[in-house]
Nucleic acid binder design. Structure first.
Lengths: 233, 233
DNA sequence: TTGTATATTATGTATGTACATAATAATCTG
DNA sequence: CAGATTATTATGTACATACATAATATACAA
C-alpha cells in the first residue's frame, strides 16, 4: 500500500480516527510518537501535534508527557449543548415569540436561593416571574432571582418588554455558570400559566450564572409539556 | 501603565477575555488584527492566533478571513455534557451498582424505531429491557434496540451480566449520535420497575448511535424520580 | 450604472528550530 | 536495597517564515 499524503492536520486527524475506529489501534494502545507519525505521514511534528491535540480534547485520546499518547479505554461520550435564548429558539422554529412579565418585586429570597447564590442571608434580590409563548401558546415559565449587588442597574429596568435573559446577556458580562436538568410535576401557578394539567410531567432547567465570584442570577425554567432538548455527539 | 508580558497563548487568552469582560471590547466590536496584537503583546502572531482560535471555539469571538475578529453579539451559551456509563455514574457517587436484564428477544420493532434508525421495514432487531440499580434501589429503566446487521456479534451475547451500554462501548466503534432529553410520565412497566407512582414525572433520555451510516443502537433511558443532569459552562 | 477582473488583507495553516515541562527510567549513594 | 539524584524522552509551546484561502475593496470595462 503506497502511503497517501497527509499534509494537513485535518487529514492526519481523519486518518488517526480511522485507525482507532477500525481497531487498528485499540483502546488502551499506545500509539506511535508524534515524531514517528510525522515521518510516516510526511509532515511536520507540529501538524501531527495539532491533530492529536484536537482529538485528545474530545476524550478519545489520552496524552501524557513522556508517557506518550494512548487510545482512551472508555471515552466518556461528550456532547456540546447549545443553550439558546428562548426567543431565538422559538423564532428559529418559525414561530411567533411573545414575552410577558407576570411579577416583579424586590424580596428576601428563600434559603435555598441564598445558599446556592452564596449571598448573605437576609439580602434582597430582584424576583421576576415571566411567561414565554410561542405562537400565543405557553412555552416556558420563568422564575428568576437577580443579585442587585452584582447588577445594580437591574433596579431601574422594568423587564416588561425585554426579557431578563436578553437584557442580562446584552448588558452584564459573565464568566461561567452551572445548569441542571430534571423532570418535575407542575406547581399550581405553573400549571395555570402553562395551561396544562396540574400533575403534568414538565421539563425543568435550573441555571446559575456567575461573574467571577459574584452570582448574577438564578433561574428556574419550566417548559410546557412536550419540550425536548436535543443535541448530537 | 507598563505593558506586562504576554508570552504564552494562555495569558494572551486571559487578557483578551478580560478586555471582553470589562467591556473594553464590547459585543459587535472588531478587535485588532492578530499582527497588531502580536506587536502589542510582544509575542509571535502564531501565539495570538492560538489564543483567539480557542476563544472563537467557545463562541465568544467570531472570526472571518479578511473581515477580521469581532466580539460575538449574543454568544449562545455552550455547555459540554458528559454522558457517562451508568455504572460509573453510580459508583462515582460511592453507591453500589447493579444491573439486571428483564427481557431479551429478537423482534420486529415498531415503526418509529425503524424510521429513526433508518432500517428496512420488517427487519428484526435485538430488543433488550434492563434495570440499573444504585444501592439496590431502582435507578434507570433501559429499553434498547440493537441493529444486528451492524452488530452481528450481539446475537451471541447474553447481556445478563454486562450491560449493553458497556459491552457496546468496549466492542463496537461508533462515529457519532444524537441524544435528546425530555420529561415524561411513567408507563406501567416503568412505574413497576422503578417502584414509583404510575404518573410520576420522570427524566427521559433518548439516544441513537451511529457508526458511519449504520445505526448501531437506539436507547430509551427512563430515570427514577429525582434524577438530575448537571453541567457547568 | 452594472458587472467583471484584480489587488489587498486578515485569518488559516504548514514547517523547522528551539527550548520548556512532566513523567519515566537509569544511576548513584548511603 | 531503599531513597535520592540525574538522564532521557515525549509532549507542550514559542517563534519566524512562508504560503493558502476567503472575503472584501478597488479598478476597470461594457
Amino acid at each position: 500500500m503506497s502511503t497517501p499524503s497527509f499534509r494537513n492536520w485535518q487529514s492526519v486527524q481523519d486518518e488517526v480516527l480511522r485507525r482507532i475506529n477500525t481497531r487498528e489501534w485499540t483502546p488502551g494502545d499506545l500509539i506511535p510518537t508524534e515524531a514517528e507519525l510525522a515521518v510516516e505521514f510526511g509532515c511536520a511534528r507540529a501538524t501531527v501535534n495539532r491533530a492529536l491535540r484536537e482529538i485528545a480534547k474530545t476524550g478519545i485520546l489520552d496524552r501524557k508527557r513522556k508517557a506518550g499518547t494512548r487510545v482512551a479505554r472508555n471515552p466518556a461520550t461528550k456532547a456540546t449543548l447549545n443553550i439558546p435564548i428562548i426567543r431565538q429558539e422559538i423564532e428559529d422554529k418559525g414561530q411567533k415569540y411573545n414575552y410577558s412579565l407576570l411579577n416583579r418585586s424586590i424580596e428576601t429570597p428563600p434559603p435555598n436561593i441564598t445558599t446556592s447564590m452564596q449571598i448573605p442571608v437576609g439580602s434582597k434580590l430582584l424576583h421576576l416571574i415571566a411567561l414565554h409563548t410561542a405562537d400565543d401558546r405557553p412555552f416556558a415559565y420563568e422564575d428568576r432571582w437577580i443579585n442587585l449587588d452584582a447588577v445594580p442597574s437591574a433596579k431601574n429596568t422594568s423587564f416588561e418588554t425585554v426579557s431578563a435573559n436578553e437584557w442580562l446577556l446584552m448588558n452584564i458580562p459573565y464568566t461561567g455558570g452551572e445548569i441542571s436538568f430534571c423532570a418535575t410535576t407542575a406547581t399550581e401557578p405553573e400549571a395555570i400559566a402553562l395551561d396544562c394539567p396540574f400533575d403534568s410531567a414538565l421539563f425543568l432547567t435550573d441555571r446559575l450564572t456567575w461573574n467571577g465570584a459574584d452570582a448574577i442570577t438564578k433561574l428556574r425554567l419550566v417548559f410546557a409539556p412536550g419540550y425536548q432538548l436535543r443535541t448530537s455527539f
